[in-house]
Design a protein around this nucleic acid. Structure first.
Lengths: 203, 203
DNA sequence: CAAATTTACTGAACACTGTTCATTTTTAAA
DNA sequence: TTTAAAAATGAACAGTGTTCAGTAAATTTG
């Protein structure tokens, strides 16, 4: 009786179809500027059909946010294999920024877009983000333990580095670097990342 | 013939009335969640009346953005009086962050909200922002000139410090600090600011 | 002061939005 | 082939930004 399995596959396929169409439209026009009718038109279904797979527009948003969180985790995963905590920290930062520049739409979804807060029950996504954050904190802690910093305030160190990385990416993502010529922006971000690493060495 | 003057005053008063109502609503509910009808209701006028003073919703947004830029300039203005460039730089940063925490809605308007890009003709606002940014850059340059840093890469230094400050404020403004207990957030930001200053001293 | 003119304002409409639901079409089971 | 279940939809509701013909108020003119 493989029919139910095929149905299940088709249902999942439809959910993915909706999600990918939504992601493309959200990226191009922003969450609010995209209507359910737009998404429906893109996948050549009636608007009402979408409500058979997602109970409302914000649920589509949350599904995308979860996918983004999973993709980000996968992007950062290889870092865990690095033994030396300092190298692990540097590579974590590099990959964090890299993820932001490669997937600005997903980064935006995760760290900038004002989420329809009502459903903080996006718990799976939240758990994913917390796990990543914990891994980051533990790496900083390992650096502290092994005397890579003079300071022992793990929390503040971790937060400070995160602030810089997030500022770096989000100024780019939300186009607040217009005072720099376009071809220079990535280069400047690169240099700034190197600089904060150098600064952190004397921390 | 003071009548035209009084009319002018009344017109300006009406514009301010609309702006302040809009700002309050935008702050509470966000730009997209606020309708022209909401604003009209708040000031007890018909929706159509608003279009006599602002040609569309985005023009209200831009007017607010300009006011925010002017307020931010005023908030940073006292810094210019500080002679010593390093002290000036530190105080600039402190006040920048302070502005963000005191006026998260305005900060959001200036540095996070995806502006309806069509009117980059918000030139007065852009000019204001650029002037502030230039002042910041020049302060960093003055520090470089007086050998406050080992590095001489003024542009990267300025950008790096800006990244941290912006990250600091925007993580707070867009509520990405939920992993820290609420009463700790401001304190952590304070500590992080001190830390980046310390780091900059060894730059 | 009354009439004419300019200014300020509004109600109704248009095309759009998210969402619901009765109805129809398609698919699977008997 | 009929019957039951699943999937898809058209039409509707209350909301949106925006426009415009028309009304009400204020000012200028005779």
């Amino acid at each position: 009786m493989g029919i139910t399995q095929r149905k299940e596959r088709e249902k999942e396929g439809m959910r993915q179809l909706i999600l990918q169409a939504a992601l493309g439209l959200f990226r191009d026009r922003g969450y609010d500027a995209v209507s359910i009718r737009n998404i429906a038109e893109a996948i050549e279904y009636s608007p009402a059909t979408i409500y058979l797979y997602y109970k409302d527009k914000s649920e589509i948003f949350f599904a995308l946010q979860y996918e983004a969180a999973a993709l980000k985790r996968d992007h950062l995963l290889p870092v865990a294999a690095i033994e030396n905590p300092w190298e692990r920290l540097v590579e974590f930062g590099r990959r964090y920024v890299d993820f932001g520049f490669k997937h600005p739409d997903l980064y935006d979804l995760l760290f900038i877009t004002r989420a329809p807060m009502e459903y903080v029950e996006n718990q799976e996504c939240w758990a994913l983000g917390m796990a990543t954050h914990s891994f980051f904190s533990e790496t900083v802690q390992a650096c502290v333990d092994q005397r890579y910093f003079k300071s022992t305030d793990t929390e503040t160190i971790a937060y400070t580095l995160w602030c810089h990385a997030h500022g770096l990416v989000s100024l780019f993502v939300r186009e607040r670097m217009r005072m720099y010529p376009e071809e220079k922006r990535q280069d400047l971000a690169q240099k700034s990342f190197s600089m904060i690493i150098k600064m952190a060495e004397h921390l």
